[in-house]
């Protein structure tokens, strides 16, 4: 667990709204878009912004943003993504190595143990993650992700 001051990062955002069961299809579209736009994970950072709970009361309320860090302008007429930003500021950062499929335990640790005891105050931007290496390009136990809890 570290506290990091992160710079603002411009991103292209593909929003997933609705049933988590269809997230896989959105991820496929996101990967295809990154290939076509020539903004792959090797050169451009990959973020996931969790706007709702992992399992909201109604699946229709599930909201997640898939983000590709780039300062290139988004091509006009591109219906799939929009330009946005991961705002800069202080964050509690928890590194997860292995089994990065499910980052919920890391998020739960930050909210259940760390935040209440820290005296810190969460900032007005959702908890998000950055994927630093990907399965199956690396073995599952070597996949790395950071979970960011924005702080005031």
């Amino acid at each position: 667990m570290t506290i990091r001051d992160v710079p603002a990062t411009p991103v292209a955002i593909m929003e997933h709204r609705g049933d988590p069961a269809t997230l896989g299809a959105t991820i496929q579209r996101f990967i295809a878009w990154r290939k076509a736009a020539n903004l792959p994970p090797k050169t451009n950072p990959t973020f996931t912004v969790w706007r709702s709970e992992r399992r909201p009361a109604s699946p229709a309320e599930y909201r997640i943003d898939l983000c590709d860090g780039t300062d290139q302008p988004i091509v006009a007429g591109d219906q799939q993504v929009r330009a946005g930003e991961i705002p800069g500021g202080r964050c509690a950062v928890l590194r997860v190595v292995g089994n990065t499929d499910n980052l919920e335990p890391a998020a739960l640790y930050l909210y259940r143990q760390w935040l209440p005891a820290s005296g810190e105050e969460a900032r007005d931007f959702p908890i998000y993650g950055q994927r630093l290496s990907f399965y199956p390009e690396v073995p599952q136990h070597e996949a790395v992700a950071d979970v960011f809890l924005p702080l005031k």
């Binding site: 709970e53 909210y111 259940r112 935040l115 969460a122 900032r123 007005d124």
Partner: peptide
Amino acid sequence: FSKFHFHRQFSAT
């Protein structure tokens, strides 16, 4: 509490 986090803070607590 920030409404961006409150639902998760509540569940976690």
